[in-house]
């Protein structure tokens, strides 16, 4: 890049016979399927969280599952989100009906949560995938 970076030590560089043209086989290796490419659209904004509880089983999210959360996505009506409520991260389905916001459970044992205007509520991120071990 600049004079300040004189480059790789010569003694080491000399040992690199294959430098210059990578073999075609290397290109082939690159084509292996990578789950990261499939599951992660915004690398810097994507986090993995562990689910604890059963309120989302109807959405296929079970206790102990790993969820992939993308913070770059704008939270939308009917999407499963992670919300910050009462100092906790909570996974629920987001419902936006006019000015009414609620966090809907996917299990009849749980009640939906209506968000009062004054409460300290925030969308943390949108859940894009769930990884469930069989």
């Amino acid at each position: 890049m600049s004079e300040r970076e004189p480059g790789y030590p010569e003694a080491l560089a000399d040992n690199r016979r294959s430098a210059g043209f990578p073999s075609p086989a290397d290109d082939y290796l690159e084509l292996k399927l990578d789950l990261n490419n499939l599951l992660i659209k915004h690398r810097e904004a994507t986090f993995f969280l562990r689910v604890e509880g059963d309120s989302m089983v109807g959405a296929g999210i079970h206790s102990g599952d790993l969820i992939i959360v993308d913070r770059a996505l704008q939270a939308q009506h009917k999407k499963v989100v992670v919300a910050v409520l009462d100092g906790e991260l909570l996974v629920r389905r987001l419902s936006l009906q006019g000015s009414e916001i609620s966090l809907v459970a996917e299990n009849s044992d749980f009640t939906d949560i209506k968000i009062a205007e004054a409460s300290s509520f925030e969308i943390w991120g949108t859940v894009t995938n769930v990884i469930h071990e069989l």
Binding site: F47, F48, R50, V51, E52, D54, M56, L90
Partner: peptide
């Protein structure tokens, strides 16, 4: 280590 250890991921409560 929320982001660098599989064993220490943050918890998303489903309750």
């Amino acid at each position: 280590e929320y982001t660098t250890s599989w064993k220490e991921l943050p918890i998303a409560h489903a309750k």
